[in-house]
Design a protein around this nucleic acid. Structure first.
Length: 561
RNA sequence: CGGGGCGUAGCGCAGUUUGGCUAGCGCACCUGCCUUGGGAGCAGGGGGUCGGAGGUUCAAAUCCUCUCGCCCCGACCA
């Protein structure tokens, strides 16, 4: 492509609304423009990147036997009603009616429709297994779109679905996808981890996410530096360091000191020496959740144990416990008590269930008997649940996920097959997603410098940028054109900056756009019959003789992946 | 949905507190000259009615009311 013929609206300054690095650079380099909150236009360069990513996705999906299909974005409501998600999902689903007043929705994902298809077409175990995929638009009315293309209301997703006759079959399909995803992200030049994740409303028991470390990410990932345990904090089962406090049991006067912070300062003890007692109201009634003073209650873990719950109001605390909020503790009442494992050792300060008093030296398991569970949010300084080594926590962008669905969708949509014995059984399913735009954003987040983007070669919009410094110089122009023609004939995608701009402008734009290799053709070098090959990432520049230029360039481009 | 911030030319901003002439600056854009190894220079020029509506006032970008939009933090994230 010729730069002069391509729409590449670069900006010297990023629009002020952009915060994330990838967002700023995508805007500045002319890859995207924003239409409205969470709605993005992909300009020629941006669309090229997405297509290159999609090429890799298709390549690797076909390699595991997945078949590409295309499904509608507009869905009839009744299918979503049958699986219940029409009712479970709230404002996040775009809903509308057609002209006959029939309820419809815009697809946020395609489990329902894929399963509907399977239910109509799959009859025998002989038809299985199947893997169907598409690269298709999804619409979600996000509560808060953010960070450019990282979280949008409309986005393209590679989604695939596996259909198997058994759990073993699902395990196999799952593994095929996990392996394919590793190859995909590696080929895309992304630094990533596969982590344990929460299946959430997708249903099923097992799920993993593929996470690209980046400060722009929305997820916190726990990682063990020793055994490799890696998990989203949503599910991470980290172990807090054991406490060795050994106080005698005594009541302490703590006038008007309610919060852990206030009491810990008042009696001069670390927050970790406290039992934080939270009165929760679940469907079954009130119960007490205990975590250590330095911990946060993990609401998702809690929900898994007791279902939906909420914090008790001040009035409820008083009427149920008989003491004001801030002075409640685990001792002396009969309501159900769930405690985090970390309270199994040591003695603690807890509320006395009496106005203005706390109790020091409380030993869980001795002074009261709780149910032991993992209830806290993983934090730095804790230990790996597998090997006990120290863990670290980092931010990451979710670039892909894989779920074992089991029969959640096939059961409700009656997607069944006849097994060898002629018995009807539900199809065992899995679903697997990748966000190409997130790959692009993660690539930028992980590969940039003060001047712009540094694309991994495999997903760069072009392989090479040819930069004739002065297009009014005949020799420069002739050589640039010849090289452009040569590369194009070799099916190497080259961008020729044929604009009549000064060198500085071209250099700045080239660095901003981030094409991995720059060929610089200037009058100075041509005097010695030389042109320059420059690597965007390292800025290393090498002068080569004109007669060797073609073979040198081929050499560099061909080992790009 | 809760909290905070911001809407003035394509982009970045000043002006708003304390109403007052034709609303300003840098970049970008157009024309000409000149220049060509890191966002050149000179000269000339085009473009906004200040997010929108209503109100106060002799007078509103500026004050008041309502409203729309965008960003950030949180909740949420199938």
């Amino acid at each position: 492509m010729r730069f002069s013929k391509m729409f590449i609206p670069t900006l010297r300054e990023a629009p002020s609304e952009a915060e994330a690095i990838s967002h700023k650079l995508m805007l500045r380099a002319g890859f995207v423009r924003q239409l409205a909150a969470g709605l993005y236009i992909f300009l020629p360069l941006g669309w090229r990147v997405l297509n290159r990513i999609n090429r890799i996705l298709k390549d690797e999906m076909e390699a595991i036997g997945a078949q590409e299909i295309s499904m509608p974005i507009l869905h009839p409501a009744d299918i979503w009603q049958k699986t219940g998600r029409w009712f479970e999902i709230k404002e996040e689903m775009f809903r509308l009616k057609d002209r006959t007043d029939r309820d419809m929705c815009l697809g946020m994902t395609h489990e329902e429709i894929m399963t509907w298809l399977a239910s109509r077409e799959i009859r025998s175990y002989r038809d299985l297994p199947q893997i169907w995929y598409q690269i298709q638009t999804k619409l979600r009315d996000e509560a808060r779109p953010k960070s450019g293309v990282l979280r949008t209301r409309e986005f393209i997703m590679k989604d695939s679905y596996s259909f198997d006759i058994s759990d073993e079959g699902l395990d196999h399909s799952y593994k095929l996808h996990a392996d394919a995803y590793h190859r995909i992200f590696t080929r895309c030049g992304i630094d990533f981890y596969q982590v344990e994740s929460d299946p959430g409303m997708m249903g099923g028991a097992t799920a993993h996410e593929f996470m690209a470390p980046s400060p722009a990410g929305e997820d916190d990932i726990v990682q063990c530096g020793s055994c490799g345990y890696t998990a989203n904090v949503e599910v991470a089962r980290t172990v807090a360091p054991a406490m060795d406090t050994n106080w005698d049991y005594e009541e302490v006067y703590t006038p008007n000191k309610r919060t852990v912070k206030e009491v810990s300062e008042f009696i001069n003890a670390e927050p970790s020496c406290f039992i934080k007692s939270l009165l929760l109201i679940a469907d079954e009634g009130p119960l007490l959740a205990l975590i250590r003073g330095d911990q946060e209650l993990h609401e998702k873990k809690m929900s898994k144990l007791i279902g939906k719950f909420r914090a008790a109001s001040k009035e409820e605390v008083k009427s149920i416990i008989g003491a004001e909020a801030g002075f409640i503790g685990p001792i002396g009442h009969t309501i159900r008590i769930l405690s985090d494992y970390s309270l199994q050792s040591g003695s603690y300060v807890a509320g006395a269930n009496k106005e203005d008093y706390h109790i020091k030296g409380v030993r869980p398991g001795t002074h009261f008997i709780p149910e032991w569970h993992d209830l806290h949010v993983a934090a730095n300084g804790e230990h790996c649940p597998e090997c006990g080594s120290a863990i670290t926590i980092f931010k990451a962008i979710e670039i892909g996920n894989i779920f074992k669905l089991g029969t959640k969708y096939s059961s409700s949509l009656n997607a069944v097959f006849l097994d060898k014995n002629g018995e009807e059984r539900p199809i065992i399913m899995g679903s697997y997603g990748i966000g190409p735009a997130r790959i692009a954003a993660a690539a930028i987040e992980q590969n940039n410098d003060k001047d712009g983007i540094i694309w991994p070669p495999s997903i760069a919009p072009f392989d090479i940028e040819i930069i004739p410094l002065n297009v009014n110089d005949d020799k420069t122009k002739t050589i640039a054109e010849a090289l452009y023609k040569f590369l194009t004939n070799k099916r190497i995608e080259a961008l020729l900056d044929d604009r009549d701009e000064r060198p500085g402008v071209k250099f700045k734009d080239a660095d901003l756009i981030g094409i991995p290799i720059q060929i610089i053709i200037g009058e100075k070098g041509l005097k010695d019959n030389q042109i320059e090959i420059k690597v965007r990432r390292t800025r290393e520049s090498r002068k080569v003789q004109l007669e060797n230029a073609e073979s040198e360039i081929l050499g560099i481009v061909c080992d790009k992946e």
